[in-house]
């Protein structure tokens, strides 16, 4: 993963009194906002994919879907009804 992609990695830690502490990297899919856990050295094919329009990593299912619908676009669609109603002055 390139250095620029490394800046998009999150961190997860599991502490168990009966087992060694597990630390993992995470990435947040740019299409569905799902958190994907992975460890250093894991195959990139197992982690997910990469959207060349968003230039961000995606999860496996979104990579398989093959379409680019950024999560921001999905948020705007969810908010769209209220924006429309506000536009026609049906809500404040």
């Amino acid at each position: 993963m390139s250095r620029s992609q490394a800046s998009f990695r999150g961190a997860a830690i599991i502490v168990d009194p009966d087992a060694p502490t597990v630390e993992m990297h995470t990435l947040t899919c740019c299409h569905c906002s799902r958190v994907v856990h992975f460890q250093a050295g894991q195959s990139e094919a197992d982690i997910g994919g990469f959207c060349r329009l968003c230039m961000r990593a995606t999860c496996g299912p979104c990579s398989d879907a093959g379409t680019c619908v950024p999560f921001e676009a999905k948020l705007e669609k969810m908010e769209g009804r209220r924006v429309f109603l506000r536009g026609v002055e049906l809500v404040g």
Partner: peptide
Amino acid sequence: RSTYRWVAPPGS
């Protein structure tokens, strides 16, 4: 018995 913590990278 485990505790889990996740910290998101900025922007994600």
